[in-house]
Design a protein around this nucleic acid. Structure first.
Length: 197
DNA sequence: CCCTGATTCGC
DNA sequence: GCGAATCAGG
């Protein structure tokens, strides 16, 4: 089915690979039942290897060219093949490819003490969701707002009254008891909650 | 468990 | 030369 690596396909492969597509993506794009292993194999055979970092930083640490598994099995036999496992890891090529490392978060060197003292920096906002982990004071509501994995993540930040939460969120956090009108109560609770999430 | 690339080796 | 199997890691 797969007419081998025609120039067409090799060209596409090169293009996509240099474009930063992952091997599996390229394999899917090329179709013809080619697998990502085939793609990777071809890529290596073609000599192109390092490029931008699609997902992983490639080889973080210099991995000892896997002497295990099959190598061990082969090694069990008399090593007629005098191929030395891996004398030199060989630093691939020049690190000319500038890896785009994005600064994750503006992380201060150390501010644990300040966090314990809301004295100055935290004005206790009226609007929930404006406090960040850096501005969240000791007596501010620690109700999480939004997706913790998002950069937009924040905390409620209003004055904490019950425990670590503000009055409203404390009601939610420490649900005392489902009121009689359980259905209505829950509905209303969920409703009032929505605008904080 | 998903994904990534890297490597080995039988074909 | 090819690519499945396997490995190492995020």
């Amino acid at each position: 089915m797969n007419a081998g690596w025609t120039e067409d396909r090799v060209g596409a492969l090169k293009k996509l690979w240099l474009e930063g597509q992952s091997a599996s993506q390229i394999a899917k794009a090329l179709g013809g039942g080619v697998t990502r292993n085939a793609v990777i194999g071809k890529v290596h055979r073609l000599g192109l290897s390092g490029r931008a970092a699609p997902s992983q930083p490639a080889r973080t640490t210099f991995r000892t060219a896997r002497p295990s598994a099959k190598a061990a099995a082969t090694a069990a036999a008399p090593a007629t093949n005098a191929a030395p496992a891996a004398p030199a890891p060989q630093p691939t090529q020049a690190p000319s490819a500038p890896r785009r490392i994005e600064a994750v978060a503006p992380r201060p060197a150390a501010v644990p003490t300040q966090l314990a003292q809301p004295s100055a920096p935290a004005p206790m906002p009226e609007l929930p969701g404006t406090a960040t982990v850096l501005t969240l004071g000791a007596h501010m509501c620690k109700w999480p707002i939004g997706d913790p994995s998002s950069r937009e993540f924040s905390f409620c930040g209003r004055r904490a009254s019950e425990g670590v939460y503000c009055i409203e969120h404390a009601r939610v956090a420490y649900q005392p008891q489902v009121r009689k009108g359980a259905k209505d109560g829950a509905t209303e609770l969920a409703r009032s909650l929505r605008r904080y999430m």
